[in-house]
Simulated scan of single mutants.
Amino acid sequence: MDKIIDFYTGYEGEPEIIFYFENAEDKHVQLKVWIGHFDAIMVAIEPTPNGWNGLSRYYHTDTGWVEESPWKIPDLDEALHNIQHADNAKLDHTALLVYHNLCELLHQAKIMNQNVWIEYS
């Protein structure tokens, strides 16, 4: 049985991002997100003194899931650290819910030593 958290319904026809991994019980854990909510999160992350890192680097350089889907997040620790540094004050209510669910998904995958994949369509 799949566990699906849906922040895409109502935006059909617009770009969608799906984050997912498989847990120990062979269940798929998915977070379906409208691109606008994800854009809001990425805009709320400031670059480090060394530039963009984590998922924000791939987002701002149009690489990774934009070029290849599904795409495996290469460094889950870096991605989680990067996402956790978003300025929550810049997020509306729904983007904040997406943010919390994305952090939880990445954290759970890290604990379970699983790869996280991103599908973009």
Rank of each mutant, 00 (worst) to 15 (best):
M1P: 05
M1F: 07
M1Q: 07
M1K: 11
I5L: 08
Y11V: 02
Y11W: 07
E12F: 15
E14R: 15
P15F: 05
E16F: 02
I17N: 05
I18M: 08
F19Y: 15
Y20P: 00
N23T: 12
A24V: 01
E25F: 14
V29K: 13
V29I: 15
Q30N: 03
Q30Y: 04
Q30A: 01
L31V: 15
L31E: 12
L31P: 12
W34F: 14
I35H: 07
H37L: 11
F38I: 04
D39V: 13
A40N: 04
A44W: 14
A44G: 09
E46H: 07
E46F: 09
P47W: 12
T48G: 02
P49K: 06
N50Q: 14
G51P: 01
W52D: 15
N53C: 11
L55K: 04
S56N: 15
Y59P: 08
H60V: 13
T61H: 11
G64K: 05
G64A: 12
W65N: 00
V66M: 05
E67H: 10
E68I: 11
E68H: 09
S69W: 07
W71M: 03
W71G: 01
K72T: 13
K72V: 12
P74C: 11
P74M: 10
L76W: 14
L76P: 09
L76E: 13
D77E: 13
H81L: 09
H81K: 06
N82E: 08
I83W: 06
Q84L: 13
Q84V: 04
H85F: 11
H85I: 03
A86Q: 03
A86D: 06
A89M: 01
K90Q: 07
K90M: 14
L91K: 00
D92W: 13
L96F: 13
V98N: 02
H100D: 13
L102M: 07
L102E: 04
C103P: 01
K110L: 05
M112C: 00
N113Q: 14
Q114Y: 08
Q114L: 09
W117G: 02
I118C: 03
E119W: 00
Y120A: 06
